[in-house]
Design a protein around this nucleic acid. Structure first.
Length: 907
RNA sequence: GCCCGGAUGGCGGAAUGGUAUACGCAUUCGACUUAAAAUCGAAUUUCCGAAAGGGAGUGUGGGUUCGAGUCCCACUCCGGGCACCA
């Protein structure tokens, strides 16, 4: 039933149809259906206090268009939404106001939901999820238990930002210019006990399986770089002081081992203390202290000046027995490789810089090409002996001679490189051939690598290894507002007791940590005891010790725990009867925001299931999302973490496919009218609410899609949006008369012109194809062209008008429903099958043939399709515009592309 | 420094190797109106020209081709991401 307004009153029409859809459950997806499925997913939002910004509806409109189109095409469409609602801002708000983060979060959700509903998206609201709902995070905790059980979770000391003044741990974003964001107090790095997930165990598969997904190449490449696989060798260097054992290094260039003139270990390396000699101790201690205060970022910021300090100790190069000094420098990171390197200054930029700064020897061991030598050493002057006579040449001359006239000069060229390597303009880091390397001499780099690795391996001082930049995932936060870990810390004896009862659910190796000489054992709650809810706390302020506010909730924290059932009573109560009760302390860390978003796409399949995170039937029917749309800022972290969890679930046999997101698309950022990123401080933020009030959501949706290609970054324009509104007004006016009745030009007795009919069928074809490929901006152009044709036409057949509305419906669903109803069509436009085009109507009998002379457009003529070349050439030669260009010329060649061009090449 | 994008009218942008600038915005003129808005019609890459017409033209320079915005090579500028990863 249509509204009663006479003009295009979107403020009345839009809520009316939103209400209609809601009451009819128009967008409900069925888990049991004979229809083919289509799962289209948005990256669900974090419900911030600021409300929706214009970037949200951009991606959401794109998926909504596809969802509505696919429904019309006969698919059972799953198009869900929910809330990624754990997070730092809610916690900060709670600290400030003292109110529970849940209440603030719920307020924000209400606001987000109102805004999203006002945009008319066809979400299945029955499947709404909220990551902070215990019914949801019960399964987040369950997945953690699976990881834990498989040995993929462990506890380790990791550095975090610590603010002594605020007595709290800070997130990276809470640290601004080395000071706390709140209060500008100094901060330092401090090691704290953290949960870590062993994502590195999946590095190889995370890399290899990228080939199976339909993702933007740039995103794949970013993930590849992040995983950062490199092949090389681990090599053991004997230490001069044999009592200290050996030093293990990682290198991607074992072939340069003969060029190793010193070694560097990270300041955090476990051997630092033992290696440092008495004379150097003071300097080393000072240096370690200085670099401990630096973040990785600061270490890299100081890139220009390499810093470091000599340990006083030496190692022995395993291939030539040379005594090489061991330095300590923070350009070597403990987190990559072995935290120690062999420095080859002749063939590595950083090592070279360091060697220059500390006057360490530089030994060339890889031959560059003569070309490279000429380019980088041209400025040198060299002595050259020819027939016993000495000449002074420029190095460029020597290279020139060696590479053209006199091959015998080549050794001299390399001799110069060898002796004066530090005088060359750049460091040779590419592949070449070995030199000054004993038995390796002359071997190309790749062969030399293999040869030396093999020989080291035989001697037991080296082996081939693969290294990844990817590091294990720091998975805990010292915060209140996150999923609690379903872990209780117990004594060794109690853990042993638990093991006899629940052995199968414990990891192969117990997870432990040592504190004041006591080893604590991590005992998981049984899955039946989930969810472990957050307790109410007195204060959201941090505990002051670095632990989360949960550490202050003694009654929740210190418990008697039943190892069999996971039941708990406060430790202040008497110990309950029975053997299974042990004394424990709960884990006070909570999970990071990523946890909830790592698997939410699976919960949508079966969101109310109380027995499993989703039923096997739902998992099988829906599978992975067919399309996932979201910002490129998630190209690495979210998308890599989710892939990791998914693979673990796949290994468990609970999800049927190895990759979670088959097809991925990133929408571009919408900039402010000034072409800058939208931000509060610039005052260029556009709110969807304002536009919905002034122009309506149909206009907003159309405009967002018309701005430009979905993936492009594009500026907002208030003037352009008027054009979209005019377009909808025009559609309205062509179909509805001033009094609100149907425009008399829409007449059942009117037959459309052949041109209009043809255009209609062309448009059906184009719009359908363009929706499939997410080319919405040009699809809308096509709709405008059709609307313009309808406008020009004196009459229009109702069937044509209805088809136009159907094509418009995915983009601007409210006005489409309204006009559909007013034209007397039955049911919802959403229920009508997508119009099919008639290929016969697309057949053309005449085309415009362009005449070119020497590739230049000189004239054109409408000709029948299938005109042969001879006839076409004849027409061209008679064309008055072409004739002058042919006069007095001989035709050398004719290129004829039927239906397109006839190019006459003349001399 | 490295990696990835991009550069087309006054603006957002469109163009399977085949008429460059579709569609929209803006601007100008005209119609309607007492007037304005809205709407409708027309014009709008640039240079020469009254016009007809012609020349140039997709960041720069080269190349391939009958024909290049599109393919190849070199470069400039802009944007984004990553960054001492051995």
């Amino acid at each position: 039933m249509a509204t009663s307004c006479t003009d295009y009153n979107f403020l009345q029409i839009e809520p009316h149809w939103q209400n209609f859809w809601e009451q009819n459950g128009a967008f409900r997806a069925e888990n049991i259906s004979s229809k083919p499925k289509f799962y289209v997913l948005d990256m669900f939002p974090y419900p911030s206090g600021a409300g929706l910004h214009i970037g949200h509806p951009e991606g959401y409109t794109a998926t909504d268009i596809l969802a509505r189109y696919k429904r019309a095409k006969g698919f059972n469409v799953l198009h869900p939404i929910g809330w990624d609602a754990f997070g730092l801002p809610a916690e900060q708000h709670a600290v400030k106001t003292g109110t529970h983060p849940a209440s603030n979060t719920q307020n924000n959700i209400v606001n987000f939901k109102r805004q999203i509903k006002a945009l008319g998206f066809s979400y299945d609201w029955d499947r709404e999820i909220d990551t902070t709902d215990p019914k949801y995070f019960r399964w987040t905790q369950w997945i953690f238990l699976q990881l834990f059980q498989r040995g993929l979770a462990y506890v380790d000391e990791r550095p975090v930002w610590w603010c002594p003044e605020l007595r709290t741990v800070l997130a990276n974003e809470e640290v601004v210019d080395g000071k706390s964001e709140v209060g500008s107090f100094p901060v330092e790095r401090k090691n704290l006990r953290q949960w870590v997930l062993r994502i590195t165990a999946y590095a190889e598969r995370l890399l290899a399986d990228l080939k199976d997904v339909d993702w933007p190449d740039s995103t794949k490449r970013m993930q590849e770089a992040w995983i950062g696989r490199s092949e090389g060798a681990e090599i053991l260097f004997d230490l001069e002081n044999k009592a200290l054992g050996q030093l293990k290094i990682f290198t991607t260039r074992p072939d340069t081992l003969f060029g190793c003139t010193y070694m560097v270990i990270a300041p955090e390396h476990s051997l630092v203390e033992a290696l440092t000699t008495v004379d150097n101790k003071a300097a080393v201690d000072a240096y370690r202290k200085k670099s401990a205060g630096k973040s990785d970022l600061e270490r890299t910021d100081l890139a220009k000046d390499k810093s470091g300090v000599f340990s006083g100790a030496y190692a022995i190069n395993p291939v030539n027995g040379h005594r090489v000094p061991i330095w300590i420098a923070d350009y070597v990171l403990m987190g990559y490789g072995t935290g120690a390197i062999m420095a080859v200054p002749a063939h590595d930029d950083r090592d070279f810089e360091f060697a220059l700064q500390f006057r360490l020897p530089i030994q060339a061991v890889v031959k560059p090409s003569l070309e490279w030598l000429g380019k980088n050493g041209a400025h040198l002057e060299v002595e050259v002996k020819i027939d016993g006579k000495s000449h002074t040449w420029t190095y460029a001359e020597l290279i020139e001679a060696a590479s053209t006239r006199d091959k015998t000069l080549e050794p001299r060229a390399y001799e110069v490189f060898s002796q004066r390597v530090s005088e060359f303009k750049s460091v040779f880091t590419d592949l070449g051939a070995a030199m000054n390397s004993g038995a390796l001499d002359g071997l190309p780099t790749l062969e030399a690598k293999g040869r030396i690795t093999e020989s080291l391996e035989k001697r037991g001082v080296g082996k081939k290894t693969i290294n990844y930049k990817l590091r294990d995932w720091l998975f805990s936060r010292q915060r209140y507002w996150g999923e609690p870990f379903p872990i209780v810390w117990v004594s060794e004896a109690d853990y042993a007791k638990a093991k006899t009862i629940r052995g199968a659910t414990l990891p192969p190796q117990a997870v432990t940590f040592k504190e004041s000489g006591v080893t604590h054992y991590a005992l998981p709650l049984p899955a039946t005891a989930l969810p472990l809810a957050l307790p109410d706390v007195q204060s959201y302020l941090p505990s002051g010790t670095g632990e989360s506010p949960l550490a202050n909730e003694t009654a929740w924290l210190e418990i008697w725990c039943n190892v069999e059932t996971g039941a708990a009573v406060s430790a202040s109560s008497p110990r309950p009867a029975g053997d299974a009760w042990v004394r424990g302390r709960r884990e006070t860390n909570t999970m990071p925001q990523w946890a909830g978003s790592c698997w939410y796409y699976l919960r949508f399949l079966d969101p109310k299931n109380a027995d499993a995170f989703a039923s096997p039937e739902a998992l099988k029917y829906w599978g992975a999302p067919d399309l996932y749309v979201g910002g490129a800022e998630h190209a690495v972290l979210h998308l890599l973490y989710a892939r990791f969890w998914h693979k673990v679930l796949f290994d468990l046999g609970v999800v049927p496919q190895a990759e979670p997101f088959t097809k991925l698309f990133h929408q571009g950022i919408i900039l402010g009218e000034d072409g800058e990123k939208m931000s509060k401080s610039r005052g260029n933020v556009v709110s969807p609410d304002t536009i919905i009030q002034s122009h309506g959501t149909d206009t907003l949706r159309l405009y967002l899609m018309f701005l430009g290609p979905l993936e492009a970054m594009k500026p907002w324009s208030m003037q352009q949006i008027e054009g979209m509104h005019r377009f909808l007004q025009k559609v309205w006016r062509e179909l509805i008369a001033a009094d609100g009745s149907v425009n008399p030009k829409v007449s059942a007795t009117a037959a459309d012109s052949a041109e209009l009919t043809k255009l209609l069928h062309e448009t059906i074809k184009k719009v359908g194809e363009k929706i499939e490929t997410l080319q919405f901006n040009t699809a809308i152009s096509d709709l405008m062209v059709l609307a313009n044709a309808v406008q020009k036409s004196p009459t229009v057949n109702p069937a044509t008008a209805l088809t136009l509305l159907q094509l418009l419906a995915p983009f601007a669903p409210h006005i489409a429903e309204e006009l559909w109803a007013r034209l007397g069509a039955t049911g919802s436009i959403m229920a009508a099958p997508w119009p099919a085009y008639d290929a016969a109507k697309l057949v053309i009998t005449e085309v415009k043939l362009v005449f070119q002379v020497n590739g230049k457009h000189r004239g054109d003529q409408v000709v029948p399709v299938g005109l042969n070349e001879e006839a076409a050439l004849q027409l061209a030669r008679e064309n008055p515009k072409v004739v002058p260009h042919l006069e007095g010329k001989t035709i050398k060649r004719v290129i004829y592309v039927p239906g397109r061009i006839l190019n006459i090449v003349v001399a």
